[in-house]
Write a protein that binds this DNA or RNA. Sequence first.
DNA 1: CCATTTTTTGATAGATCGCTCTAGTGGGTG
DNA 2: CACCCACTAGAGCGATCTATCAAAAAATGG
Lengths: 194, 194
Amino acid sequence: MPSSTKDRIVDSSAELFRRQGYAGTGVKQIVAAANAPFGSIYHFFPGGKEQLGAEAIRSSGRLYMQLVAGVAGQGPDLLAAVAAIFAGAAETLLETDFADACPIATVALEVASTSEPLREATAEVFESWIAGATEWFAAAGIPRERARELAFSTLSLLEGAFIFCRAMRTVEPLRMAGASAVAAVGAALADRPR
Amino acid sequence: MPSSTKDRIVDSSAELFRRQGYAGTGVKQIVAAANAPFGSIYHFFPGGKEQLGAEAIRSSGRLYMQLVAGVAGQGPDLLAAVAAIFAGAAETLLETDFADACPIATVALEVASTSEPLREATAEVFESWIAGATEWFAAAGIPRERARELAFSTLSLLEGAFIFCRAMRTVEPLRMAGASAVAAVGAALADRPR
DNA sequence: CCATTTTTTGATAGATCGCTCTAGTGGGTG
DNA sequence: CACCCACTAGAGCGATCTATCAAAAAATGG
């Protein structure tokens, strides 16, 4: 068994939070999903549910960035990579019956005005995503300022489309947002300085 | 007193759901905010919290579309109107200490996989927004197919930016997403058929 | 091998959840 | 006036929530 009890708790929490949100997920439900004894939660996370939430957010944020970077990395060029990210997201959505979209968006909206520690955790994850995407666009020759704007708009398109897709139970929004993102990146590539 | 008890309950629910989500808001908290007797909830909403949630979603969805349409209506042209929508959203965010963004996005993500009636309510609201925006773009001479794509991407940019803004406590994402939206609409206007 | 410390565990406490139920109030109608 | 009905009002129910804590198990030292 390669996975420790603590890891199983974090992983199960992340999955449940992603689908039902933070407030909608009980500690009992988490230990049941993780096949862990109840008390272990408070052994590994003395700060209780909130500390567990923070760790789950950071963990799944890290994982998701790796996943997206992996999908983006195998594209022949930047445009194909952006298209692949949106297509991959759509595929995952269909495979999971529209359950698995962004791992932390639901929690981020929930806790933004109710828990400062959790809000900070989501902000850190988002910052790292934006920084990573900015770097990626800049590496393609897009000026830094422009690259950061592109990072925000591409990720906003993705996050926004996730909301519509899950609510409407169709991947149409993701396809359209993806087309828009490709167009925006294409325009930025076209007038980059040489 | 122009507001009936039922209206106060719906309004208070909508405000609380917007900020803390559906699961994070208790019925007791709602009646306290609405200055309503506890029993009235189940008099006006025999279906309980879920029915109340559905009505709050539809009500605030209607209201928000009117609000956005109002902001958009007073712009001199389409591009200025789009810019005004994003700027207005940023202003509201700042005024409310990053609490009031999209009135239903938080709930939409929470309930997408946990409550079919509520999911349907959010889907209906989103559909009506998309239909409205499509109509608006089409009226400016943009072909219907393209107008719908533009509606999805503009609203996705707005929703996505809301997530980042609330988490990071800055309106930078909204400014950048707004610039992107204006550029996308501008491009669509430029190559519309004459 | 026993004594001591450290880690693990589930029963349970105390609060809160959504909801039901009965009783009471106020105003309009026959 | 008698009656009715929409609404107000809140006590309390069973379930579930998070968190605690004393005991069991495992690890460590003499």
